[in-house]
Write a protein that binds this DNA or RNA. Structure first.
Lengths: 215, 215
DNA sequence: TGTACATCAGTGAACGCGCGTTCACTGATGTAC
DNA sequence: TGTACATCAGTGAACGCGCGTTCACTGATGTAC
């Protein structure tokens, strides 16, 4: 078993994870493009040079953080989309799942919201790539839903993207509400998000009423 | 006239604008939280210390950039929302106006998209404040539209926020398409944005069909 | 089990560099008379 | 119009500091026999 789970390898993985955790925490108050290698190693309590045993650069660490953050989002999105029940129940459950994810992984949510349009190209592209996967996945889930009978592929992806963007926006607003808002702000934001999802649902239900059938 | 438009004052204003312009250009490849004061003055061609004649810090300059960038967006949003014509025409016109704004002020659009969730608190809050003004303004415009007869205040603001977020998202995607996408990418993104606006319009038209009349 | 050698995560000194900020200054522009 | 003084945008030297990266190293862990 030494090769598969050697002490050395386990310790290395632990340090790597400590670097990721420390970076995520330091990113609460700044962007990745200003995060320093020494800052991260200092927070972990190792020598600056040890950083290179795990990542080639801070940018590289950022890409690893994308995978960690959006990997954890994957099951949440799956659950949200595949939840059964009528429209109103689904919406309440979706908003609840998003709020729960924000509570469980606030730093991940902040990181993705911040770096999605951030100053580090490789990280932006990693996020975009993951979000495209999510969109495709949501699109497939929507396709197998009775409400979407008769919808074209392009319309399904359009709707999927609207949902994904809306989820991220809601998560980001919930995060702000938790961090800076008053006690009722969280509920206000959740209620607003539910209304917006409801409006999208209504649009979805009547999409094929349009002359030209979904344009 | 010396007091109102003295040579000294005009030169100062010119230097200030040069600092803003240089900063905006430097921000194409990084975030505000990593932009250096010396970097900006070097680009303008003045001594680092001259910076303090215009701004207290880079953060302060960032807040000034928010006003410049969103000030220029204000008339665009007014025009977009108040445009007359039926739904389909309005949507085409709105997407056209957004695309035109992105072409005219790409660096402003990039700055707002990047710093909206960025690492500098004062700048985030300045952006949020301006966007809240926009949302209120869009809400008022929606209220005086026949389609919104019978809508509650809260629903109007919910819809206004959906529109404002959608505008920003579209602007940001158009920017990426212009910068990195192939030749047809711009049209693809514009078409997608139009479909999403259409879906929202459909939802809007049938909002009061809901049991309970708009939630 | 014991020994001899290989691997490699983490160390610590050293480097050159650009940073933000201070300070006293210069000299063109503005103002008072 | 001319003179004497005030203002103030921009200068340039200097400072202490933290940065990313290099390098030869140490010593615990892994491997071969």
């Amino acid at each position: 078993m030494s090769h598969i789970s050697g002490v050395r390898q386990a310790r290395k993985e632990k340090t790597r994870q400590a670097l990721l955790d420390a970076a995520l925490e330091l990113l609460e108050g700044q962007s990745l493009s200003s995060l320093g290698l020494r800052e991260v190693t200092r927070a972990v309590g190792i020598a600056p040079t040890a950083f290179y045993r795990h990542f080639r650069s801070v940018e590289d660490l950022g890409v690893a953080l994308v995978e960690e953050a959006l990997g954890s989002l994957h099951p949440m999105i799956r659950t949200t989309v595949s939840t059964t029940g009528d429209g109103e129940e689904r919406i309440a459950r979706a908003v609840g799942l998003i709020a729960g994810h924000v509570d469980a992984h606030p730093a991940h949510v902040r990181f993705i919201a911040r770096e999605r349009h951030g100053g580090v190209r490789a990280v932006r592209e990693a996020i975009r790539g993951q979000l495209e996967l999510f969109t495709a996945e949501v699109g497939e889930a929507l396709a197998s839903d009775a409400v979407s009978a008769g919808w074209g592929e392009e319309d399904l992806l359009m709707l999927a993207q609207l949902y994904v963007d809306q989820m991220l926006m809601t998560a980001s607003l919930l995060l702000e509400a938790a961090a800076e808002g008053g006690p009722g702000e969280r509920e206000r934001v959740a209620g607003l998000a539910a209304r917006q999802l409801r409006l999208i649902s209504v649009g979805r239900a009547h999409w094929l009423d349009l002359p030209g059938g979904g344009g």
